[in-house]
Each structure stands twice: as structure tokens, then as C-alpha cells.
Amino acid sequence: MQVSGTFLAFAVLSLLTIGGAVFMISFTRVVHMVISLGVTFLSIAGLFVLLEAEFVAISQILVYSGAISILMLFGIMLTKHDAKDEGVSKANKGWLSILVVAVFFVIAFWGIQSTPWVAPPDNAAAVQEDNATQLGVEIFTRFVIPFELTSVLLLVALVGAIILAKKEEDNE
């Protein structure tokens, strides 16, 4: 196998991605969990950069590392800021979880292996140069209906959240 700078960067970033996720599960304090989740989000953005999808990488940082991590921190701090997780009992769940994880791995691996990957187009250089423009054009022409449906879905979620919060306020 050829060891190049890209490969090294991929190894480090994927290690950070998985490491952040694993620490997120094993930490007991909620704030530590969010910070390690932030590490995962940032490393995923790095992986996008390796794939030359700059716009997606920046969106990943903007939305996940920026907005969502901070939103979670806010939620934690406004409720009880020195909360400690009780710790779920780990007994007798080992075999079952290994089985579930193994099945999931097999399915995911099989899915990746059997997907017919489209060969990169000839104008790969053009894709690199201006992928923000190309993304915009694709979204507003070919994928305009899914895009609009997603925005409606998000709006519904927003209104729903407001109604739920209002209900709790009335009960008090």
C-alpha cells in the first residue's frame, strides 16, 4: 500500500472521528461528551476536505461544530450544569450488543461493497474549482423538489417545537 500525505491525513482524521465517538460514549460528564462529539464533527469536516468537497466541509463546521454543539451545551447548562450520568448497568448486555454491532457491520460492509460507484466525471478539475456553484445549480434545478420538501419538514419541526414549549409554559 502506498503511504502518501493524503493517506496519513485520512488515518489521523478517521482515528479522531472514531475516537471522539468512543469517548463520547464512555465519558460520564455530559459536557465532556459534547466536547468529544465536537471533535468528531470537526474531523468529519476534515474528511470532507480530503474528498475535495470544501463547501460541504465548511457547512459541516458551521452547522454541526458551531450550531449543534453549542445548542447542546446550552441545553445542558440551562438544566443542571453539574449533572453526572448515573451510568447504565453494563451487566448481561455484552453478547447482545456484540451481535447487533456485528450484524450492522456486515450489512453496512455488504452495502458499501455492492454499491456500483459512479466513476468520477471527466471534468474532475472543474468540480474541484467551483463546487459551491455546482451544488447550488444542482439543488435548484434537479433536486428542487426534495430541497423544498426538506425545508417544509424543518419548518414543521420548528413549529412543533414551539408548540411543545408553549404547552409546558401553560401548565405551570
Binding site: 466536547i35 470537526l42 465548511i58 463546521i61 458551521l62 461544530s65 458551531g66 454543539s69 453549542i70 451545551l73
Partner: peptide, 10 residues
């Protein structure tokens, strides 16, 4: 610029 400056908030 805008995305990275958001990390400072963290």
C-alpha cells in the same frame, strides 16, 4: 471565515 469563527464560541 464565518464557520471557523463559530468554534471560538465553543
Amino acid at each position: 471565515y464565518i464557520a471557523l469563527s463559530g468554534i471560538t464560541v465553543l
